[in-house]
């Protein structure tokens, strides 16, 4: 990567203290996002992908806390800011889109008021300017008759239209980074395609970077530039989208890609990964994937691999350690 990264996450560690000991939800998570780049984050539920997004915008559910590592936005650390300082960054510099558009919007305010309030909090705008911009934004996200709909309440919109409003809300203060957590999961496929096309267009036009968290590999394949695959609170593989989807290196990524039912042909039996992801209180020593891995060997049981150069991607797997070359 040539340009300085917009967002850099270094060795992020998130812990949940509980009565029965500390659970480590995120373990040494590191990645960066370049300006204008869309990074997809995939993994099964509980892998820590939403947690990573929540840590970046500092909306971790207590008692979860950042216990180590750094988060840098445009070269400045944001993981140690106070909640007050963070509030000015959220919305202005980092926008957020969540899965359920109904719970994201305030049901008691018109969408216009929610948009103008957000813009006026972060930008210096008069009431009439803010209203005019709110209408522009609603038009930009494809809401028909925006000038009339601006005074409607969220419940008067359909699910797809609400998610468009949420996108407008996340982008209206023109943040440099958008954290989108499963933005299309609650939508029907035909609406999902519209929303994905919209997100891609806006990210390109505004040169906004995006962290797109989803479990839907199809969405990632169409939207992201690079992909990070997460498993049990760790990034196990990261690389360009085409490589990770078509030629994954980590055995988990390979299993994950193969278990997606193909749309273009029928198979007698789908490839499956036996077993399930370990719970946080029962992550095995060594590589967390070792109990399910078809290529497991001695070293995987005792020693945890970091991201290693696997050619076109980086994978946290001892198969790609030069010293282990004979095993490949």
């Amino acid at each position: 990567m040539t340009a300085a990264p917009l967002l850099e996450v270094r060795n992020l560690r998130v812990e949940f203290p509980t009565r029965r000991g500390t659970l480590v939800a995120l373990h040494d998570v590191s990645f960066s996002i370049a300006p204008g780049e869309i990074l997809g984050v995939v993994g099964e539920s509980g892998a820590g992908k939403s947690m990573t997004g929540a840590a970046i915008i500092r909306l971790l559910e207590p008692p979860g806390r950042i216990a180590g590592g750094q988060i840098l936005l445009e070269g400045r650390r944001i993981d140690n800011l106070s909640q007050d300082e963070m509030r000015r960054i959220r919305g202005r510099r980092i926008g957020a889109i969540f899965q359920d558009p109904l719970t994201t919007l305030n049901p008691l305010y018109t969408v216009g008021r929610q948009l103008t309030e957000t813009m006026q909090t972060h930008l210096d705008l008069s009431n009439s300017e803010a209203r005019k911009r709110a209408i522009d934004w609603l038009e930009m996200v494809g809401i028909p008759a925006a000038a009339q709909r601006i005074d409607s309440y969220p419940h008067e919109f359909s699910g797809g239209m609400r998610q468009r409003v949420v996108i407008a809300l996340a982008l209206c203060a023109e943040p440099r980074l958008v954290v989108a957590d499963e933005p299309t999961t609650a939508l029907d496929v035909s609406i999902q395609a519209q929303v994905i096309a919209l997100l891609k267009r806006l990210a390109r036009e505004k040169n906004t970077s995006m962290m797109l968290v989803t479990h839907d590999m199809g969405v990632i394949a169409e939207t992201a530039d690079r992909v990070a695959v997460m498993y049990a609170g760790r990034v196990v593989e990261i690389g360009p989208v085409r490589e990770v989807v078509k030629h994954p290196h980590h055995p988990y990524s390979i299993g994950l890609m193969n278990s997606i039912p193909p749309l273009d042909h029928r198979v007698e039996r789908l490839a499956q990964i036996d077993g399930a992801m370990p719970r946080l209180n029962a992550v095995p020593p060594g590589c967390p994937y070792n109990p399910r891995c078809p290529k497991v060997f001695d070293r995987c049981i005792v020693e945890r691999p970091d991201l290693l150069d696997a050619g076109s991607t980086s994978a946290a797997c001892w198969l790609y350690d030069r010293a282990e070359a004979p095993h490949v």
């Binding site: 359909s158 797809g160 239209m161 029907d188 496929v189 035909s190 609406i191 999902q192 395609a193 519209q194 994905i196 096309a197 839907d216 590999m217 199809g218 969405v219 394949a221 169409e222 989208v241 085409r242 989807v245 078509k246 890609m257 997606i260 749309l263 273009d264």
Partner: peptide, 23 residues
């Protein structure tokens, strides 16, 4: 239209024209 709308691994880097409107 429905088949066109499904996000697919084969669609890396390609653009699609989504169906307009809603149900």
């Amino acid at each position: 239209a429905l088949m066109d709308a499904i996000p697919d691994l084969e669609m890396i880097g390609r653009r699609r024209i989504p169906v307009g409107g809603e149900v």
